[in-house]
Write a protein that binds this DNA or RNA. Structure first.
Length: 393
DNA sequence: CCTCCACAGGAAGCGCAGGAGT
DNA sequence: ACTCCTGCGCTTCCTGTGGAGG
């Protein structure tokens, strides 16, 4: 069988890929370079703090600049990049730095003081010609548990050094993260600040087009698909990673179905699938009784054992709050537990709605009394299966 | 028009867990 | 180690609401 692929190079579409040229980030790249430039004049690079929403190119920008910096092959100017989800404490960060340049120290077990001394030694080198200008990039810096001590250590180290220097580039998703720092660490880490604004739809389209050129076969993605992915991502915080993941997913769908083109319909479908994925992740961590409630609703929707029913304008079935509660009680009792009261059931329902798993409307004309009509947000069968998996585990 | 229905959602209080104070 | 306090999840009780039905 002839394996016909829509993709030219899937890696280009991966969220971890760092492109050669970063579109619409020229100014940001220049700022980062300006902060690092002093290192090449044998001076301390500036500390820099970067923030912006996810998928705005912070990591790619810093990684790109660091790579260019390494390309120049100046043995005295060095960089270390790490993600603080992994290296989440002062000790781990220091150990990673030392281990990077002194492979013998890659193992754990050394005391902090020993590591610190090693670090100092390595940076100072034996002579002014071998002293290093190190730039440490800490991605997702807000994940570090003991940040104040870390910032203190890494800035203070410059006082202990006879020659060479250590500079910091901190990257964070949250703007108000720096308010959690004490004022001294804040002023040292925020020597320079840089904000990455979210991409708009046009910028996203440019970025997507560039990646598509490398990632997909020519003509494999329609213009409509690109526009839709860009528009959807722009309305959801301007996240380029999300836009890319939509296209990648749509491409995989097209491939699986033997289609020759990625169309906007497929992008729309993968948006729904992505939506569903996150929704089902949410279901898994819901409190038990909210899961029971959702399960009862899904059962009701599936077996149709309801007495009353209303259909919404767009043809969706709406179930009566009272009946859903009855069903919920039955479900809970069947698994040998005590159902919550109706009052609490209403609270649960409210939480499910704010989680986007169900939607509700208050009954208007045509219904006796005053009640809530509930609609299940996702496919009943899938919802049931997900809950069966988590509830019975 | 009044009454009933089928709830909505506020208020008060209860039992418990976990943290602070001593 | 002890008590005290507080927050949380929950129940009980109650008043409010908007349309249907007589």
């Amino acid at each position: 069988m002839q394996e016909k692929t829509l993709f030219r190079n899937k890696d280009v579409l991966s969220p971890h890929f760092v492109p050669e040229a970063l579109l619409h980030r020229d100014a940001e790249v220049r700022t980062v370079m300006r902060c690092i430039a002093p290192a090449f004049q044998d001076q301390k690079a500036k500390n820099l703090f970067i923030y912006g929403r996810p998928g705005t190119g912070k990591t790619a920008c810093v990684k790109g600049v660091l790579a260019k910096m390494d390309e120049r092959g100046d043995a005295r100017v060095r960089s270390a990049y790490m993600n603080c989800r992994v290296y989440d404490s002062r000790y781990k960060v220091l150990q990673k730095c030392v281990g990077e340049f002194k492979p013998g120290f890659a193992r754990t077990g050394y005391s902090f003081a020993v590591l610190y001394e090693e670090f100092l030694d390595w940076i100072e080198g034996d002579s002014p010609e071998t002293a290093k200008r190190l730039v440490v990039a800490l991605d997702e810096i807000d994940m570090i548990r003991d940040l104040d001590p870390l910032v203190y250590t890494l800035t203070r180290i410059n006082d202990d050094l006879v020659r060479g220097s250590v500079s910091l580039v901190g990257i964070s998703n949250s703007v108000n993260f720096k308010n959690r720092l004490d004022s001294r660490s804040r002023s040292s880490i925020c020597e320079e600040e840089l904000v990455f604004a979210s991409y708009n739809a046009n910028q996203l389209r440019d970025i997507l087009s560039a990646r598509i050129k490398e990632g997909f076969q020519e003509g494999a993605v329609t213009a409509g698909a690109v526009n839709l992915a860009a528009a959807v991502a722009a309305s959801e915080n301007g996240d380029a990673r999300y836009a890319l993941s939509l296209l990648l997913r749509a491409g995989e769908l097209a491939q699986k179905r033997g289609k020759t083109e990625v169309t906007d319909a497929l992008v729309e479908e993968s948006r729904r699938l992505a939506d569903e994925d996150t929704a089902f992740d949410v279901i898994g961590v819901l409190p038990q009784h909210q899961q029971y409630l959702l399960y009862a609703l899904a059962c009701l929707a599936q077996d149709g054992h309801y007495k009353r029913l209303v259909t919404s304008d767009d043809g969706e079935r709406l179930y009566f709050s009272g009946e859903v509660y009855e069903r919920y009680c039955r479900v809970v009792k069947q698994s040998g537990k005590q159902p919550r009261t109706a009052r609490w059931y209403r609270e649960y329902l409210g939480e499910l709605e704010s989680a986007g798993l169900v939607s509700t409307v208050t009954s208007g004309k045509g219904v006796r009394g005053h009640t809530t009509l509930i609609r299940l947000g996702y496919d009943a069968d899938k919802v049931r299966k997900v809950i069966e998996k988590t509830l019975l585990a």
